[in-house]
């Protein structure tokens, strides 16, 4: 197991270095002079040279990258070109909201998707199974931004049950929770479909195993066979998937946050791109990619702990 973890850590470090190079290149590959964007098109040449020197942009690219990495490792992601605030502070202020939204969506996806998948597999090829499959298909094909707007129209504008947009505090307060309901559910729709499909196919595979036949032959009640014997084993791939889902929803929150005017990291990225605020884009993309990579790493390790066969691949 130690060898396995060591190999994974090495791979992760390699990936993270690659990620940081790619993020570093965002500003270098962009057409136009980043210094001109900071000082404006009419600034005198001396001012341009001065800022270029201050930012270290007159040094060799490798030097610039190493400096970027060194700063990033100490938590210095530069300053926002618009607000002049340190990027790390802007991210820190907005991450809790994105984290709450993502956690809420993942919880909904699991609480709805897993039971639907189990029922669908247990009642295979019945009308219920087909209904669940079609529902999952609907969920997977739904444009999230469109369903978000339609849900707002119905529940917030017409029925006035929920706030239309904005955030009214953390999720554990009543008003805060209300403002998370619509964004959380719309963000969870696609994942519900994925979790359901995965649980269903994993359950079907496990249900065809011999030990399930043995459990049935012993005369156990079907519910006991399904929950005690099949589900426990079928959940393994689902757990892995939930980890991956978590990371991808951190990215997916971009759309939900924009529609519901939630000041999270996702909305920050979109605003930053529209304003060409490159340090913020770099910082946010780097942070989300690093979190995503760390989650993948933890999932890999957990999987190997739960299923020893993985370690000997």
């Amino acid at each position: 197991m130690t060898g396995f973890i060591a190999r994974r850590v090495a791979l992760m470090v390699l990936t993270l270095i690659g990620v940081s190079i790619l993020v570093f290149l965002i500003t270098r590959l962009t057409p136009g002079d980043p210094v001109r964007q900071i000082v404006g098109p009419d600034a005198p040449q001396e001012r341009v040279d001065e800022v270029r020197h201050d930012l270290g942009l007159d040094r060799p690219v490798l030097d610039q990258y190493l400096r970027f990495m060194g700063d990033a490792l100490t938590g210095d992601l530069g300053q926002s070109l618009r607000t002049r605030q340190p990027v790390i502070e802007e991210l820190g202020a907005r991450f809790p909201l994105t984290f709450q939204l993502t956690t809420f969506a993942v919880t909904i996806a699991v609480l709805v998707g897993v039971p639907l998948g189990v029922v669908s597999a247990a009642k295979r090829d019945t009308a219920l199974d087909r209904l669940a499959t079609v529902a999952a298909l609907f969920g997977a094909s739904m444009p999230i931004f469109w369903i978000a707007i339609m849900a707002t129209l119905l529940f917030a504008v017409r029925l006035s049950w929920l706030p239309t947009a904005g955030n009214d505090g953390p999720i554990w307060t009543v008003s805060g929770f209300k403002s998370f309901i619509l964004p959380g559910i719309t963000l969870a729709l696609g994942p519900i479909a994925l979790v359901m499909r995965l649980t269903r196919s994993s359950m079907l595979e496990v249900l065809s195993r011999e030990y399930v036949g043995v459990a049935r032959a012993k005369g156990l009640a079907e519910s006991r066979v399904i929950f005690r014997h099949a589900l426990r084993n079928a959940l393994l791939p689902v757990i892995t998937f939930i980890g991956l889902l978590y990371g991808s929803l951190l990215g997916g929150a971009v759309v939900t946050e924009t529609i519901f005017s939630l000041n999270g990291v996702g909305r920050l990225v979109v605003t930053a791109i529209n304003q060409r605020d490159y340090p913020v884009i770099q910082g946010a993309v780097l942070m989300l990619a690093v979190i995503f990579t760390l989650i993948n790493f933890v999932v890999d390790i957990m999987y190997a702990m739960l299923d020893p066969r993985i370690r000997y691949e």
């Binding site: 990936t15 990620v19 993020v23 965002i26 962009t30 990215g251 791109i273 989300l288 990619a289």
Partner: peptide, 24 residues
């Protein structure tokens, strides 16, 4: 495959957004 791992390290929509940030 390491290059692919790096691309996979970005949540899917974020990768597309990052590319747009570069290309416009």
């Amino acid at each position: 495959m390491r290059i692919m791992d790096i691309l996979l390290a970005f949540p899917s929509i974020l990768l597309a957004i990052a590319v747009i940030a570069i290309l416009g």
